[in-house]
Simulated assay, not measured.
Amino acid sequence: MNKKIEIQELGNKDFKDTWEYQEQLFKQILDIKVKNRREDAGLDTPNYFLFVEHPHVYTLGKSGDMSNLLLSEEELEKKEATFYKINRGGDITYHGPGQIVGYPILDLDNFFTDIHKYLRFLEEMVILTLTEYGIKATRSEGETGVWLDVGTPFARKICAMGVRASRWVTMHGFALNVNADLGYFDNIIPCGIRGKAVTSLHVELGLEKVNIDEVKEKLLKHFKTLFEAEFNIQKTEA
């Protein structure tokens, strides 16, 4: 089992370009798995974890409802935002500046073959990170992601998640609001859940801006522990 993960910092990158890059890495891992099965090749499968910040974009999961996007094409253009229907689970979400988007592209055969556990570990990584900022975050039953004040009228989501998996290979991932412009969430029914708000770390801390690199370091620290992984970190213009 190869527990080494290549961490790639993609910087600010268009959603569609990043999606295509994810698909490329995803296919590479699947091809190795097929070769191993057919030829008993015994090749290690690589693992990746992409960090990226996207320009304003709305994405709708395969089981999502188009009516949860509250903007017309013209209104999207005015807001300089794009929209894509994509192949992850979940409904509609927003990505944009000030948000940490993480795409782990892992062969779970290298770690554990349990998608439920995988999602819970991603949530735990975020929960432990927020704890370091003095924020008590939790899960909300039946609603993937990380929330604050669950069970109260003030419940609000700080991190959205949606993944795709095939033959235990994962793609897509999580979006943690760090310095996000929350006004963009007003244009959708986030994750198809009505009556619940969205928040961002800088708002919760009462700060103008939070150090994003510091948050990433904390996320990786907890991810490494949870997945018992080894890291190779690099900046890339993939």
Score class of each variant (00 low, 15 high):
Asn2Thr: 06
Thr82Lys: 07
His222Lys: 11
His202Ile: 05
Ser67Ala: 15
Asn110Glu: 06
Gly173His: 01
Tyr118Pro: 01
Glu9Gln: 14
Tyr103Ile: 00
Gly162His: 01
Glu20Ile: 08
Ile115Asn: 09
Thr225Tyr: 15
Phe174Thr: 03
Gly162Glu: 02
Pro46Asn: 04
Val169Arg: 00
Arg156Gln: 08
Leu128Asn: 10
Phe121Asn: 11
His202Ser: 05
Ile7Val: 10
Val163Tyr: 05
Tyr94Ala: 05
Ile32Trp: 07
Phe15Tyr: 13
Leu119Phe: 11
Gly151Glu: 06
Lys196His: 12
Asn47Met: 08
Gly89Ala: 03
Gly183Asn: 14
Asn12Ile: 12
Gln28Ile: 09
Val146His: 00
Arg194Thr: 14
Arg37Pro: 14
Ile188Thr: 02
Asp44Gly: 11
Ser200Ile: 04
Ile188Val: 07
Asn232Gly: 15
Gly151Asn: 06
Glu228Asp: 13
Thr152Cys: 08
Asn110Asp: 09
Glu204Ile: 04
Met125His: 14
Val34His: 15
Gly195Glu: 14
Gly183Ala: 11
Ile100Trp: 02
Ile92Thr: 02
Gly173Leu: 02
Asn211Leu: 12
Asn211Pro: 10
Ile92Lys: 01
Glu73Pro: 10
Glu237Asp: 11
Lys136Ala: 13
Gln234Tyr: 15
Val150Asn: 09
Glu214Ala: 10
Glu80Asp: 15
Gly96Phe: 01
Gly11Glu: 03
Lys3Met: 08
Val34Met: 14
Ile127Leu: 05
